[in-house]
Design a binder for these strands. Structure first.
Lengths: 353, 353
DNA sequence: CTGAAAGCGCTAACAT
DNA sequence: ATGTTAGCGCTTTCAG
């Protein structure tokens, strides 16, 4: 209704402290060329009046908007929310992103954007024009969409590409997929497993390939065979069933399986149960998301924890720093860790097989 | 870095269409007094240039900020995020709130605020001053904090109080706690249960009382006893263990228990297991959140689904309407529903007891 | 080091 | 029905 104007503005502070607007502005923004005594006097007025600058006005005058935009895929995100299966990707992003933003006086805003339509650019362009964010966080699959990265680069908006190792403009930051897969594989190798199967994710997610590489690397380092031991799924349950079946149908089936997603791990668990294979006695199983549900299965799953919060936090920091420092070149990797639960155990002794 | 100015402004559109800024503004805001032909001409220029108004500028000139602020309790929210136990309250709020906001050209922004400190007012005041939101969504326990509701009322910012029936300024909107508890109780009564225990939530959450009332009402309507059948917990697991034990220690113990939270339901399940009571054969159990985890227990729990998304969506709608229409008086209730799973069954026949 | 002036993009209020 | 003017709160010039 009635136009709500700012209750306390920079003018009030200036008047109270008996200085010019400019000096107040300098104090707010921690700029140099303010004598300590002056700085204190102004700060006292700010505190006294409870003054907080209007972000809109700051943005208007060509300064920052103090807004970081996190762009998520609309369909995937809404599907997760509706499914209510405990996938907490968004929460973890908020945990890492919001808190880091808050530390620097920024806010994080989530924006859902369709990848699959031809008006990605329009949707994104509109969000940028309306909000004028100081930085943008791109999550898969957006982080590998050249239409998007191109647009952002062109407009000169700092952005981070989460979950990709592609070269290009903006900060590339991954969750250590290769490293994490090695971690999981090494864990199984240490438990004496020699035939370790891997259920990969879909090819259009580059992280799928990196995870396969990590597994390959660890297997090769241990001089273990990999031939025929890698099947590909699409991250979903059904595809996991198919892949797990194929692996267990092998003449010489694996004694351990690493699945690239929680759903595919759940599917593997289901297939094992159907075949009378006990987990972990007969088959060890490692999941590749550490989403909440994997703790509630029987047995709870050993899982690679994707450091979503830490990665998001780091990305936000870099984005905020981008205003002053130069963005780092190359790929940044925030490594995950393995959470060992009940689904992995020593390999069954060979004579039992 | 370089001040990033709007690429296409209202000026460009005005020039392109050969009209005044004001006319463009009128078209953007769907205001009257624009001839259809003119409206079309301007819209054509807008589309052609891909113009999107700057929210900052709109807000600056005393118009809307197109921002809805959702205020959540900092400690509780962060604890949930860190625990990674699948509690998806925030996600459901986003699902209902963000999508509804988007339909109206608004954005929803989450802000974490400490309830327990003495500077609640400062924190909230700062958020308001910085963001100048058009509406605010208050979740428990903030929705019942008079310091907050008072501040908001004073500043004349439209706000919704979610999960409360308290009188006062702002829109009060509940998730049908009384109704939902009745629903759960009626379900058990229909299954032939006559002794139905209830584990209430803590007293400082008003919804705890409303849920108890729903249970009482249903029991009384069926002329069933309630004496000694209500224990109180604090929503947490431990308290659920204590409460469930007390109920099952009764001389004439209940054959069914309704727990006011998922954690307390899980605790009841655990206590039942320890005592060799089979769920649902010996004891039926209903949970009062429908958070993701209750689907992964053995057996999966029958649960009251809290319509968080629907409630948030409704609240956002009302907040946006508040600009033009008057806010509704009284309490709005968005009712939930019962999701029947494997933890409820016919009451054990009396001669077996 | 501090201040004064100009302007960001938009809309409310007032013309016409 | 359309155009003009003034100003929102702040920062960036540019002067002192």
């Amino acid at each position: 209704m009635g136009r709500r104007r700012q209750s306390v503005t920079i003018k009030h502070v200036a008047a109270d402290a008996g200085v010019s607007l400019q000096t107040v502005s300098r104090v707010i923004n921690n700029e140099p060329n303010v004598r300590p005594a002056m700085q204190e006097r102004v700060q006292a007025s700010i505190d006294k009046l409870g003054y907080v600058p209007s972000i809109a006005a700051q943005r208007m005058s060509g300064s920052r908007s103090y807004l970081i935009l996190a762009i998520n895929d609309r369909d995937l995100t809404i599907a997760d929310w509706r499914a209510r299966e405990g996938r907490d990707w968004v929460d973890q992003m908020l945990l890492g992103g919001m808190l880091t933003c808050a530390q620097h006086g920024y806010r994080m805003l989530i924006e859902l954007v369709d990848t699959h339509t031809d008006h990605v650019e329009r949707e994104l362009g509109a969000a940028i024009a309306a909000l004028q964010p100081d930085g943008i966080l791109l999550t898969p699959p957006h982080s590998e969409n050249p239409l998007i990265t191109g647009l952002l680069a062109e407009r000169g908006i700092p952005f981070a590409r989460i979950g990709t190792t592609d070269e290009g403009p903006g900060i590339a930051i991954t969750m250590g997929d290769t490293f994490n897969a090695q971690l999981a594989t090494d864990h199984l190798i240490e438990l004496g497993h020699e035939r370790i199967g891997f259920i990969a994710g879909p090819e259009d997610f580059s992280l799928s390939g990196r995870r396969v590489n990590g597994w390959l690397r660890a297997m090769e380092a241990a001089e273990l065979p990999t031939g025929g031991l890698c099947e590909r799924g699409d991250f979903g349950f059904e595809s996991g069933m198919v892949a797990a079946s194929k692996l267990l149908d092998l003449e010489n089936p694996p004694t351990a399986i690493i699945a690239s997603s929680d759903q595919m791990a759940l599917a593997t668990l289901e297939i094992a149960r159907k075949r009378g294979l006990k987990v972990p006695q007969d088959l060890s199983l490692v999941s590749f998301d550490n989403s909440p549900i994997v703790r509630f299965t029987q047995p709870p799953l050993t899982a690679v924890d994707q450091p979503i919060a830490a990665t998001t936090a780091r990305a936000v920091e870099l984005l905020i720093e981008a205003r002053t420092k130069k963005l780092p070149e190359g790929v940044i990797s925030v490594e995950g860790e393995l959470v060992v639960r009940g689904s992995t155990a020593r390999a069954p002794s060979r004579d039992n097989g």
